[in-house]
């Protein structure tokens, strides 16, 4: 496992659940500033792959290097602190707190017990909250309880919570699920903007949306990588058509 220029280098990654290999000897490299979309049929192991990278699931074998630093042994919160942010499939926000509090809590300072006790919402935090709220289009809803947001707004809020941490690698699991056409458009714009100084991995099914955002597409099938390349190349790949795009 040599050092690389890639922001994320996944090599020979395997995870098995009771003998079933959900991820089987997988290799994946993501460049700096790249927006990678992972597609594939249900059960291909897409979400499992993100779980492995962010530490939610522990790998059976193989390595995950983030900026040449091994991640497989680190606890989840250390992986986050290294600079990997993860958005879950269903919007995972703090429904009882206001939008402002949701963002403020995600600010990467005062992360220890006593740090959190002494944490003060100073100008830097306020400015960051305002900046991110503007990006995700929730600047007018800061005092609103997050549970009252629409589904699409909740998805944006969770992306905003990740942006508060300025992660170098952002992983989004089906960010447009349940969104209206207009919201999808806005989300595509948002993703195109936020990948300018970071790498982003997106799992998505909507091929039009994928075409709008993807720099490069990886197709997964049965825990392995079936194909990888530009959108056009993927669309014309007979194997991809066979297992996924098909018929």
């Amino acid at each position: 496992m040599s050092n690389t220029d890639f922001v994320l280098a996944v090599e020979d990654l395997t995870v098995s659940f009771d003998g079933f290999k959900a991820i089987d000897n997988l290799n994946l490299y993501v460049d700096r500033g790249e927006l990678r979309v992972i597609i594939g049929p249900n059960g291909a192991g897409k979400t499992t792959l993100l779980d492995l990278i962010c530490g939610k699931t522990k790998a059976s074998a193989g390595s995950i290097k983030f900026k040449n630093q091994e991640m497989t042994r680190l606890p989840e919160h250390m992986i986050v602190r290294a600079g990997i942010g993860r958005k879950f499939q269903t919007p995972s926000i703090y429904e009882n707190l206001t939008v402002f509090k949701n963002l403020e809590v995600s600010y990467p300072r005062g992360r220890g017990v006593f740090g959190a006790l002494c944490f003060k919402c100073d100008d830097a935090v306020q400015a960051k909250v305002d900046e991110v709220a503007g990006m995700i289009g929730l600047a007018d809803c800061l005092d609103l309880e997050a549970g009252l947001l629409s589904h699409g707004q909740k998805q944006w809020l969770e992306i905003g919570m990740l942006l508060m941490q300025d992660p170098e690698l952002l992983m989004l699991d089906e960010p447009i699920a349940g969104m209206s056409a207009r919201e999808r458009e806005l989300t595509a714009d948002l993703l195109n903007r936020i990948c300018q100084n970071r790498s982003v991995i997106v799992i998505e099914h909507d091929m039009d949306f994928v075409a709008r955002i993807a720099h490069k597409v990886t197709v997964m099938h049965q825990g392995k990588i079936l194909a990888e390349g530009s959108m056009d190349k993927i669309r014309s790949d007979p194997r991809v058509i066979d297992v996924y795009l098909g018929h």
Binding site: E76, H77, V80, G85, R86, F88, N96, L97, P108
Partner: peptide, 17 residues
């Protein structure tokens, strides 16, 4: 409060829950 609501989100925001 956030942990009680969504423990995983707190964990994956870099906190040792």
């Amino acid at each position: 409060l956030a942990m009680r609501d969504k423990e995983d989100r707190v964990r994956f925001s870099g906190y040792d829950v």
